[in-house]
Simulated assay, not measured.
Amino acid sequence: MRFGLFIPQGWRMSLTDVPPEQHWETMLSLLHYADNAASGEAVPGGDWAWDSVWVYDHFHTVPVPSTEATHEAWSLMAAFAASSQRVKLGQMCTCMAYREPTYLAKVASTVDAISGGRVQMGIGAGWYEHEWRAYGYGFPTAGERLRALDEGVQIMTRMWRTGSSGRFDGERYQVDGALCYPQPLQQLPVGDGGAAVPSIPLWIAGGGEKKTLRIAAQHAQYTNFAGRPDEFDHKSRILADHCRDLGRDVDEITRSANYNVVIGENQAEVDDKLAWIEAHYTKHVSAERGAQEVESWRNGPLVGTPEQIAETLTDLKARGMTYAITYFANAAADRDQIELFQRQVVPHLQD
């Protein structure tokens, strides 16, 4: 199993206790920490603790929009690329309709060049209605958003592989001859045993059973959907059905999930961490919303002692979930939970 780490960028009110002039320093410090962990240099947990770091592609905070900072994802991708050496760089996930696919392909390819070939393209249809409308994107129907995802992925893949969009006449996008140079530094094989061509790994996010998982079966190198065991099993079966219909081996696709992690040496420590989360949110939202937020954390699959979390992940790995992207609520202020996870969970699951 491989592991990714979310960098606190503000979207989940993760920088509210940090002065604005220290936001970048805070993010950069954790990036360097994970980058060193990727090389096994004097970091608790041993070699290759973190395969990747991640941010969210959002503009307004949750659980409610606020004036607290949310740093823009692709600006951070470029900054992370120039400020790290080893760790992979992803967004979970980029909203297809926030940027034209021709432009997004060009941006991602440029960042891949800056990073030396480490960009991961998390991509999805988008859902945060308040944000869409506030930024003037309207809020298309789910079907229209999924059509944009499908067509956009086709355009980006073509641009990365060939250097040009060619002519594409879709229902949502019409492009003709958009060039993409530099092409990505990364190389991915095309077809069964085909030659490698320039491209960027696609992480298609979402568990929509009729459309999203079919798009993933067609185009993805990675999926990202529900992380609870029963839900994961169900979505995996749907993905396998789509792959079978399309003549693709489902094992070509790495299945990942995102997890809120609350970890302590014992139950008392876990309870203290949950109390901190509730207190943190109720400084910025109503007591009712704060209680709802902590309840969603409390019921997550990766809440408990290292032994409990390792057991859960071992079970998920057996089900086919081989890439966990982790979020720690207090990461901006304290790495205690990250280090405990590295020392006592990661070694049990690493390939």
Rank of each mutant, 00 (worst) to 15 (best):
residue 120 Q to F: 07
residue 32 H to D: 01
residue 316 L to H: 11
residue 6 F to P: 03
residue 195 A to H: 11
residue 203 W to D: 01
residue 292 Q to P: 00
residue 23 H to F: 12
residue 341 F to G: 02
residue 192 D to C: 03
residue 34 A to W: 12
residue 75 S to W: 04
residue 290 G to M: 03
residue 183 Q to F: 08
residue 63 P to A: 03
residue 325 I to G: 02
residue 106 K to Q: 15
residue 217 A to F: 01
residue 319 R to I: 08
residue 350 Q to V: 14
residue 301 P to A: 12
residue 221 Q to G: 08
residue 221 Q to N: 03
residue 270 V to G: 02
residue 209 E to L: 08
residue 341 F to H: 04
residue 110 T to H: 11
residue 200 I to Y: 00
residue 182 P to N: 01
residue 172 R to E: 13
residue 128 Y to R: 08
residue 112 D to P: 10
residue 223 T to C: 15
residue 216 A to P: 00
residue 233 D to P: 00
residue 71 H to R: 13
residue 277 I to H: 00
residue 61 T to W: 05
residue 83 S to V: 06
residue 217 A to E: 01
residue 202 L to V: 01
residue 100 E to H: 15
residue 64 V to A: 01
residue 309 I to W: 13
residue 65 P to E: 00
residue 167 R to H: 13
residue 265 E to H: 13
residue 295 E to N: 14
residue 207 G to R: 04
residue 183 Q to K: 15
residue 336 D to N: 05
residue 139 F to K: 02
residue 22 Q to C: 08
residue 171 E to L: 05
residue 7 I to C: 08
residue 297 W to C: 02
residue 334 D to T: 14
residue 336 D to W: 09
residue 300 G to N: 12
residue 302 L to R: 04
residue 140 P to V: 08
residue 91 Q to L: 10
residue 81 A to E: 12
residue 156 M to H: 02
residue 345 V to W: 15
residue 280 H to Y: 05
residue 160 W to I: 14
residue 264 G to L: 06
residue 305 T to I: 07
residue 246 L to D: 09
residue 76 L to K: 02
residue 129 E to D: 08
residue 223 T to W: 09
residue 220 A to C: 09
residue 339 E to M: 02
residue 291 A to L: 05
residue 202 L to K: 05
residue 131 E to C: 03
residue 133 R to C: 12
residue 131 E to Y: 01
residue 253 I to Y: 05
residue 181 Y to A: 00
residue 351 D to K: 11
residue 343 R to Y: 07
residue 49 A to E: 04
residue 96 M to G: 01
residue 121 M to P: 10
residue 229 P to V: 00
residue 77 M to N: 11
residue 167 R to L: 15
residue 37 A to Q: 02
residue 259 Y to E: 09
residue 192 D to H: 07
residue 89 L to P: 05
residue 240 A to S: 14
residue 328 F to C: 09
residue 132 W to L: 01
residue 208 G to V: 03
residue 244 R to K: 04
residue 56 Y to L: 10
residue 7 I to F: 06
residue 25 E to S: 12
residue 210 K to S: 14
residue 69 A to L: 06
residue 235 K to I: 10
residue 345 V to C: 11
residue 31 L to R: 05
residue 268 A to E: 15
residue 46 G to W: 09
residue 314 T to Q: 09
residue 145 R to W: 09
residue 42 A to R: 13
residue 17 D to N: 15
residue 74 W to L: 12
residue 243 C to N: 04
residue 14 S to N: 09
residue 345 V to N: 04
residue 18 V to A: 10
residue 275 A to G: 12
residue 41 E to Y: 02
residue 93 C to A: 15
residue 62 V to A: 14
residue 152 G to H: 10
residue 118 R to Q: 10
residue 307 E to W: 06
residue 168 F to W: 08
residue 52 S to K: 12
residue 165 S to Q: 04
residue 287 A to M: 01
residue 258 N to S: 12
residue 317 K to C: 07
residue 291 A to I: 01
residue 107 V to P: 00
residue 100 E to N: 15
residue 1 M to E: 00
residue 85 Q to M: 11
residue 204 I to H: 10
residue 317 K to G: 10
residue 323 Y to L: 09
residue 130 H to F: 15
residue 93 C to P: 02
residue 3 F to N: 10
residue 104 L to M: 15
residue 205 A to P: 06
residue 261 V to T: 02
residue 101 P to L: 08
residue 89 L to E: 01
residue 236 S to P: 03
residue 208 G to A: 11
residue 128 Y to A: 10
